[in-house]
Design a protein around this nucleic acid. Structure first.
Lengths: 151, 151
DNA sequence: TTGATTTAGTGGCATATACCACTTTCGACG
DNA sequence: CGTCGAAAGTGGTATATGCCACTAAATCAA
């Protein structure tokens, strides 16, 4: 197949997803920079905030994230005093997570900036289109792609 | 605002994008694991392959990726002998990149696995829907989100 | 020609994520 | 009871990515 007729990277769902993620990351991070939080961190704080002292595993599942990755990602937030953890009294395997007062304050601050970014995104992309996009992405996160075992 | 009525993380375009990216990453990586390449690496090799000994900057621009990030990401591929670089003779600032023979072979191998993953994705999500999704993501990568300066 | 500016990459540092091996706890069972 | 397997996290290692400060090379201007 001559190189000229090869399809661009655009054919790959995953590559497109990651490229768009980089693009939005640069944008959201830029807007939220004044808060000192990356957009990823703000998202994580928010996820903790809307939960009821969620367990690590619950957060990881909600974010479709590897548990150990969550642990690593949480470290800077604990170090900076935005988040604290404690063992579940009924099951000492379980570690629960909550925001500190400082974390709540910082999240409030970051959310204001987030709204700016979010609004700008919807202005540029279109409210309807953004909504459909989020719906599709939400679906995808919930799907089961496992290839049926070759029995 | 009572916590019960707070919108889920689903409202954030960036968070949804990243969550779906993690999901697909786990899937594509899993399918491509036998090749020894991560899906990200396969994508990068492909991008180099379809270019004409592209410069670092050109690759970074095409992938909407930070130039230094590209440099870092390229290192394992150079170390493993899939990619090599050379200075542009007409402008010694420019570093061009190409696949080695080994890199071409490995890419071929990975592409076969990629097709499996890609096909499975389209089976589960739907061909039309996947196509629309890629189109939207492609658009987003090309947009300009810069907030107009407050002049 | 030479000094200022821009362009292309590099290296260091920090976060984001994944997988794997390992440890601690639970809970189920004989 | 003990034992054994499942469940929840931790730590190590590796890749993915971004920003910043810095260097080298090319360009532009006076």
């Amino acid at each position: 197949m001559p190189k000229d007729t090869l399809p661009g990277l655009t054919a790959c769902n995953y590559a497109m997803l990651r490229r768009a993620t980089r693009k939005l990351g640069q944008f959201y991070d830029d807007v939220q920079a004044p808060s000192g939080l990356k957009a990823t961190q703000q998202g994580l704080l928010y996820q903790i905030h809307i939960g009821d002292e969620p367990a690590m595993g619950a957060i990881a599942a909600a974010l479709v994230m590897d548990l150990s990755a969550l642990g690593h990602t949480l470290k800077p937030l604990i170090r900076d005093g935005f988040v604290e953890t404690f063992a579940d009294p009924d099951d000492r395997r379980i570690k629960r997570v909550r925001l500190t007062q400082q974390g709540r304050t910082k999240l409030d601050e970051a959310m204001k900036l987030w709204q700016t970014a979010q609004q700008r995104f919807e202005d540029v992309v279109g409210k309807e289109k953004a909504e459909r996009l989020r719906a599709v992405l939400d679906d995808i996160s919930a799907l089961d792609f496992d290839l049926p075992p070759a029995t």
